[in-house]
Design a protein around this nucleic acid. Sequence first.
DNA 1: TTGTACGCGTTATCAC
DNA 2: GTGATAACGCGTACAA
Lengths: 349, 349
Amino acid sequence: MKKNYTIKDIAELAGVSKGTVDRVMHKRGKVSSKALEKVNKVLDKIEYKPNPIAKSLKNNKVYNIAILLPDANEDPYWLPCYEAIDQIENEFSHFGIKINKGLFKPYSTKSFKKAAELVISKKPDALLMVPLFNKEAEIIAEKCLEASIKIATFNNYIKDHKVNLEIGQNLFQSGRVAAKLFNMLFGKKASLAVLHIDEAFQNASHMQEKERGFKDYYTQKEDLDYSITVYNLNKNSKISLEENIESFLKTVHEVDGIFITTSKSYLLANPISSYLPNSIIIGYDLVAENIKFLKEDKIAFLIHQDPKKQVYLSLTRLIEFFLFDKAFQESVTLPIDIINTENYQQYLD
Amino acid sequence: MKKNYTIKDIAELAGVSKGTVDRVMHKRGKVSSKALEKVNKVLDKIEYKPNPIAKSLKNNKVYNIAILLPDANEDPYWLPCYEAIDQIENEFSHFGIKINKGLFKPYSTKSFKKAAELVISKKPDALLMVPLFNKEAEIIAEKCLEASIKIATFNNYIKDHKVNLEIGQNLFQSGRVAAKLFNMLFGKKASLAVLHIDEAFQNASHMQEKERGFKDYYTQKEDLDYSITVYNLNKNSKISLEENIESFLKTVHEVDGIFITTSKSYLLANPISSYLPNSIIIGYDLVAENIKFLKEDKIAFLIHQDPKKQVYLSLTRLIEFFLFDKAFQESVTLPIDIINTENYQQYLD
DNA sequence: TTGTACGCGTTATCAC
DNA sequence: GTGATAACGCGTACAA
C-alpha cells in the first residue's frame, strides 16, 4: 500500500533503531551480524528509495559551479546561454547552488586562458565550459582533474580527452542533415560549396566535423553527379571578413547550394543576391540577423544548435549530481533541429 | 549577504514569532495590526521566497492526477506518452504524486466516455486528457469544472472551451511548415494533394487545421502556379482503409507532393511506388513504420509532434501548480520539428 | 554496538 | 492574538 518507505518504517519492521538502519545502508560498520541480517531481510523485501528532498534540506553546503563561455557582446550566438543560467539560478537558489560566469573573447586564446585561470582560482566544485580552443581547453581540463573539480563541456568537445559530462550536437551528423536537404532540393545533379566563415580559427574542429559529415553523405550516395568545393573565409591580418566574402562571390559562378558551417550566414546572405541570385543557403543558428534573412528567403534553412538547452541541461545534470548523487551519463547528444520560415518562432520560446 | 531568508529570520527581524509571520503571509487573520505592520515592514525590505523543499517535506497530501489518453495498442503513436508518465511517476513519487491512467479506443466515443467517467469518479485533483472527441470532451471538461478538478489537454484542443492548461503544437502552423517544404522542393509550379487518412473521423478538427495552414501558405504566395486537391480516405462501413487508398492511387495521376495530415503515411508509402513513383510525401509522427519508410526515402519528411514531451510538460506544470503554487500559463505551444533521414535518431532519445 | 536527539524550513496545533 | 512546539525524512553526533 504505502509507496515510499522511510528509514523509520524500516527500523520498525526490522525491530532496530533508525541509526542502525542508517549504518547498514551506508556501510559504516559497527553493526552486529544479528542486526545486519534483520535489516537486510527487510531491505530485500521492500524497495527503499531515500527521499532526496529531505536529504538536501539539511545540506548547508554551497556548491559553486563555474561556467566559462564567450562574451555575448562579441557574438550574439551565446546570448541564450545567459538566459539558461538565470533560469537555473532562480530554480535552484534554495539548494545552495552558486554559479560564477567567466567570459572570454571568442577569438582570443589569451582571454580564454585568463578567464579560465580566474574561475579556477576560486576552486569551484565544477567547471562547465565551451572548449573553443582545444589545446588550451585540454590544459584547463587537466588542471581541474588535479584539483578534483568536475569538468563538463558544451557546444564543443575536447578531442581525445575525458570529461565528466559532454553535451552537444553531433556535428558530423548535422553536416549530413544539410547534405540531405540539398539532395532533396537538387536531386541527382548539384554543384555545392562548403563555406567556413569565421573571425578566427577557433572553430576549426567544429567546422571540419560538419564538413566531414556533409561530404560523407554525398560520398555514400552512388549515382549522384555532384561537386563539392570548400572555401575558408577567415579574417586574417590583411583582409577583412567582408572583403574576403566579396572576393569569393566574384570568383565563384554557378553554385546550387552553399553550406555555411558557422552562425555567420548573414554575412553572405545579403551580398549574394547580386552575384548568385539562384544559390540556396543552409546555415546554422537562430541569431537575429540569420532569422531576418531566413524570413526574406535569402537563407533556406538554419540548423538550430540550441545553446540555451545545452547550458540548461548541462547545469541540471551537474546539480543533480551534487544534490542527489545522480551519476552522469558521460555524453549527451541533442537533436538537430531543422528550421525554416514557418517553424523558427516556436524555437525562440 | 545572506541569500535566502527564512521565516525564522523574518520573525527575529520583526520581533515576533514564526507563527505570526506565517499567519501574516498566509492571510489567516488573527494578527494584531501592530504585528501585521511590523512584519510587513520587514517583508517589504527583504525578498522572501519560501523554501519549496521544506514545504513539500511536510506535505502529507497525495495529489491524484488522472490522465485520459488512447490505448497505445490501438495506435502506436501514443506509446511515447506512457514513457513520459513512467518517468514523471519516478521523478515525483516522493512528492506524493499519483497518476491514474485511463485508456480509451481512439475510434470510439463510447469508450472515451466510459474511461472518462471512470477516472472522474475517483475524484482526482486534475485531469489531463486528449480531447479527441470535441463534444464529449467538452462535457467532461464541464463536469471537471463543477467538481473543481483542474483540467488540462494535450495533443488536441477543445474548441471554444476554457481549460486550465493547454499544451500542443500549432497545427495550423505545422500545415504551413509542410507547405513551405514543398514550395522549396518544387518551386513555382506544383500539383499538390492533401490526404486525410484515418480510421475514423475523430481527428476531424485536427486534420482540418493542418489543411487550413497548408492552403493558407499557398494562398498567401503570389505568382505560384499550383493546385491543391483534398482527399478524405476514411474507413467506412463498406470500404476498408487499404481499399480506399488503393482506389485513390488508381484515380490520381501526376501529383508532385502529397501531404498526409495524420500519422498514417506508412499506409500510403508502400503502394505508392507502383503508381506514383515520383511523388513526394510529407507526413506526421515518428512511429516505427513511418521511420522505416523515411529511411527508404519513400517518405521525404515527417513532422514530429513529440507526444512524449507534451505529456511530460503537461504533467510537470500540473505538479508544479500543486506542489509549488506555480500559476500555469494557459496555453503552451511546442516546436514543430522537421525530420528527415539524418536527424530522426536524436529525437527518439 | 546501539539508540536517541537534534537540525534543516515550513506549517499546523495547542496552550496561554 | 500570539508564541511555543511537534512533525515531516534524513543524516549525524553523542550518549548509553
